[in-house]
Design a binder for these strands. Structure first.
Lengths: 338, 338
DNA sequence: CCACAATAAGACAGCGTTGTCAGTGTTAGC
DNA sequence: GCTAACACTGACAACGCTGTCTTATTGTGG
């Protein structure tokens, strides 16, 4: 039924081992032999069985992407980046949702690796910082790369952006626009990036000599609803902020919705800023001023590192960018002084 | 290194075949033997090699999900639904993006199946209607289920919603709100659902005796930008529509953005409706009146059919729901008559 | 022209399971 | 108490490749 390496070898008039050599681009195959084999492969539309290659060889031609992130846009971009790199390398990608809070995380990660024999793993935040998952990977000595990890890890490569600086950039931008009371919505507590963005916000305030006010900082969960809930509270303050900086776009969209409902015009009465520059940022009104996180590139680069394009442990920082759109503007009080 | 069935058999004091029987829940294993084996499996944290099972047996414990859809929200829900079902069944899911317009589609689908030996395939629109892909699947006699196919296919199961009725429902709702001039933005031409939604729109107009006006219908591509572009044209008409029904939420968000930019208040001066009820529908302002498409359930059910929960070819229709939110309201002229 | 390395290709075992078949207990019926 | 049917278990080949080892062929320097 199935076309196997045997069929190819028969058609090409060589041994199966020689076919295997051609398939794996090994040395010591004469050019004309190679061509005969390749012609046979094409004629028979032969695709080698991954299962057999995995079982017999040292590679499985598969990698896993493990994630636990509730922003569909973010995940989509991550998947796309890893996928693109895999396609170039002729490797399959196993997308694996996980729950970092689950007690069975370690078992799931371990089982995945044992069952599939994947050649490597890409970890996306916050799985990057789940000790249980990391321990399983290390115990098996399987290569892995982390995307936007929150913790340092000398032994494995990672790809990330400077969350502190990015949040600092955004906050500074708002300050430069005349804002003094800037609300901040923290990201999901599972994500280390959440702390870093908060830190960047505080650092910018400090440097500018703007007093930090705990009232203006609210927790969030990286989703629309939590952003809206936080905005509800911030905007009900007796002395509400003139700008709100949310730690991701989804939450910023929540802020916008509340502003609209309360008939607070954006950006005239309230500036709103997001983070990530997902498709959502341009799909809401007004379009969000945000930080462009090179998510897809992060993922693409991470997968590239996994395939050993560079040797040794590499920590690569990718550049973010402040994207100014319609959701932010001069502080309202400021307008009086012009 | 790796824990194998041999290790388990040694610890349990049985043959590897008996371990295999327990693993596969076959008959003819004494209860106490089964327990001994299960204890050994647990003690050794044994996970059977998928590669070996695939090679030796008739099942691969893997299915593939093939999609080509540019709405991240939609794909996310589809993946989630299939994934949930797979998890219940203890089967791995291979997510495979594809390009229905690509000339290599058939080769990619064929290669995927031959390489991975997947037990079945889930096709999401518009791959459901790509003849090249279907032919490859049929040639191999591999079971597959289609999610929201546009064409009939007697031989395989499918799961879908009634796009015609849903579009009819929405259009009727708008008519009932007093709208006479209702713009319509068609979906991506690759998707059969696009035609059906257009048909439902026309059917509702006909039934209500509202004249169909070709001017009010614009093509789109299921993305934000094409929705905005269509809205731009519709709203520049000398006699613009009082409502715009976009064939999905992404395009409806584009309409909202244009309305905001042109300072047309929604829903007072313009009603906007979407389709799908993705997360986006609730993340924009005002939140979109839309059709709730049971995307996740569609996917979950499709995967269930693949695992043969029911025998024979099944075509299951899932119920949609009209979700009325803030983006639609009475037609403006209508207000005068109240 | 010979020794020796480099190149080229095949034979065969083995990866970790499942399928098949054979063999051994165990029970039921008369 | 004997036989047939059933329940249970194991031996062994096979799945489709790659790794290792062996053998043959071709080049290369002195």
């Amino acid at each position: 039924m199935r076309v196997t390496i045997k069929d190819v070898s028969r058609v090409a008039g060589v041994s199966i081992k020689t076919v295997s050599r051609v398939l794996n681009k090994e040395r010591y195959v004469r050019a004309d032999t190679r061509e005969r084999v390749e012609a046979a492969v094409k004629a028979l539309k032969f695709s080698p069985s991954l299962a057999a290659r995995t079982l017999a060889g040292r590679r499985s031609f598969q990698i896993a992407l493990i994630y636990d992130n509730h922003s569909p846009f973010y995940i989509h971009q991550i998947q796309e980046g890893v996928w693109a790199q895999c396609k170039e390398q002729g490797v399959r990608m196993l997308a694996q949702p996980a729950d970092v809070a689950s007690p069975t995380l370690a078992a799931e990660v371990g089982g995945l690796i044992d069952e599939t024999h994947v050649d490597g793993v890409i970890l996306s935040s916050p799985v990057t910082d789940a000790p249980a998952a990391l321990a399983e990977l290390e115990r098996r000595g399987i290569p892995f790369v982390r995307i936007s990890p929150g913790t340092n890890h000398a032994m494995t490569s990672s790809v990330f952006m400077d969350d502190v600086q990015a949040a600092d950039d955004m906050t500074t931008h708002l300050i430069n626009e005349g804002h003094k009371r800037i609300g901040f919505i923290i990201g999901h507590p599972n994500h280390m990036a959440s702390d870093q963005r908060l830190f960047g916000y505080r650092r910018a305030l400090d440097r500018a000599g703007v007093a930090f006010e705990p009232n203006l900082v609210r927790p969030g969960l990286f989703d629309f609803a939590s952003g809206a809930a936080a905005a509800e509270i911030l905007l009900s303050l007796s002395d509400p902020p003139t700008a709100i900086f949310a730690s991701n776009d989804d939450m910023a969209a929540g802020v916008l919705a509340v502003a609209h409902r309360k008939d607070i015009s954006v950006p005239e009465a309230l500036s709103v800023a997001g983070f990530d520059d997902t498709e959502l940022a341009s799909a809401v009104w007004p379009p969000l001023t945000t930080i462009r996180q090179p998510t897809r590139d992060l993922a693409y680069t991470a997968a590239g590192l996994l395939f050993g394009k560079e040797s040794g442990v590499v920590h690569r920082r990718l550049q973010h960018e402040l994207i100014v759109r319609g959701s932010t503007g001069r502080a309202p009080s400021d307008a009086l002084h012009t």
